[in-house]
Design a protein around this nucleic acid. Structure first.
Lengths: 242, 242
DNA sequence: CGATAGCTTGACTCACGTCAAGCCCGGTGG
DNA sequence: CCACCGGGCTTGACGTGAGTCAAGCTATCG
């Protein structure tokens, strides 16, 4: 069991110091692990789950479908993210959770989570905090969609993913593995596939990123962040008493 | 003191039943009330507040500014919304809170909130829930911005505001007071003022809404929700044990 | 009575979507 | 081993939704 929620423990530790006791409590959580392939549905919209899921390896997304069948991804989750802690209190899913490339996911019964949040005040606040950081990321996406041009939004997203992966130790050099097709990037950015392609070429031509297969390399981080107007502080990637 | 946080008590009661004791605890919170005029800044970006604010009358928005000075509103709050409960755990504001029309706001020290969430488990969950509903609304905005056309987005927003106000008893007939200029609507929808104007004319021409001064009337609710593809369930406006 | 903020309209531009075709590559089956 | 196939990438031509600029209009306020 210990192995399974480790990435989540690491995630919480980027926000605040955990006691040995708290780590033990987290590691004692009952878990059930499953593997998913690209596009597998992990949690279905409108369901009322009695467990929450946590990504331990790979990526998962939250997505909604509009009338015309267009998919809009509203959140991207990396290893260590507690994807639908929401369902513990919201009860009914207003979106679906889908595997974004192959991923390993751990399910934890609501009952177990409920007893943790009722009995461990500090952990309870950190659970809450993790959903607040998700919300802060969503605000950044709204701001980018409303105010930014396509290449700047794309650049901003790359910066965000880079920093989030870095905080979890998932970066090698200045590159990372990201198994997204250009169509899927379009679902995140709210752009057509064709325009994603042209936008990416733009960033490549500016010598800021390389993207081959599922490997993304940032060639000029400084220039990329300036171009995107990226300020990582909304990610709350620092430790402080909470 | 009792009067002051009443709208918030009412808000929590739409999610779950409160005990008499819980209502008393909320009403005993130390509060400091202030009034603001349109565009007054209530909380500043980058600040580290030691109190949280709650709208008791009128409207407030959360907004971010991009490089080029464009304002994007990322959340709209109505009477009864606990606007920046976030700062209790996130510590540093990643956005500003601004009065949207005249409004009354109540400030509550973090210390008092902290002791409530540490000592009252059920209230603690409901506080958390209220931020989760905010996040659900943000997801709906992302989905609308990414996938919808301007008139549908506008229609969707009107439906959302209507339902949220209705849950707080702030609707008269089929109209409500909403003190937004078309420029401000543009800041919410991520549209230019000119396009907001044309979009609104479109909705008027379809006989779905009337918008005169600060009074918005929905002329054909059924058609409006269908046109917008509006499903209110993401607002979680029902009572259930949480 | 002018001043100012907000609404409306028209003309033009541009970012992005749509449609369509070709290309490259890995996988499959004969 | 080659022929074929499909998914994803790339490119071009063209259409359109939304932005920008500019002007006139209306209502409110001092």
């Amino acid at each position: 069991m210990t192995e399974q929620i480790n990435p989540f423990v690491r995630a919480l530790q980027t926000y605040d110091v955990l006691t040995v006791d708290e780590v033990a409590v987290l590691n004692a959580l009952p878990t059930r692990e499953r593997r998913f392939q690209r596009n597998d549905e992990i949690v279905r919209e409108r369901d009322r789950p009695d467990q929450s899921c946590l990504v331990v390896e790979g990526f998962a997304v939250r997505a909604q479908f509009s009338e015309n069948g267009v998919r809009q991804i509203t959140a991207l989750h990396i290893a260590g993210d507690f994807v639908d802690l929401h369902s513990l209190l919201l009860k009914r899913m207003d979106h679906s959770v889908t595997a974004f490339g192959p991923c390993r996911v751990v399910f934890i019964p609501h009952a177990a989570l409920r007893s943790i949040i009722d009995e461990h005040r500090h952990l309870s606040r950190l659970f809450w905090l993790s959903t607040l950081v998700d919300a802060a990321i969503q605000r950044a996406w709204i701001a980018a969609m409303g105010a930014g041009t396509a290449p700047r939004r794309f650049a901003h997203l790359i910066c965000e993913i880079f920093e989030r992966l870095r905080a979890r130790g998932l970066i090698t050099g200045n590159s990372f593995v990201f198994p997204a097709s250009q169509t899927e990037m379009g679902d995140i950015l709210g752009l057509s596939t064709v325009h994603v392609n042209r936008t990416l070429q733009d960033l490549r031509a500016q010598g800021m990123v390389t993207w081959t297969g599922d490997k993304v390399t940032i060639e000029a981080y400084q220039r990329l962040t300036e171009y995107a107007g990226f300020d990582p502080s909304y990610l709350n990637l620092w430790s402080e008493p909470r």
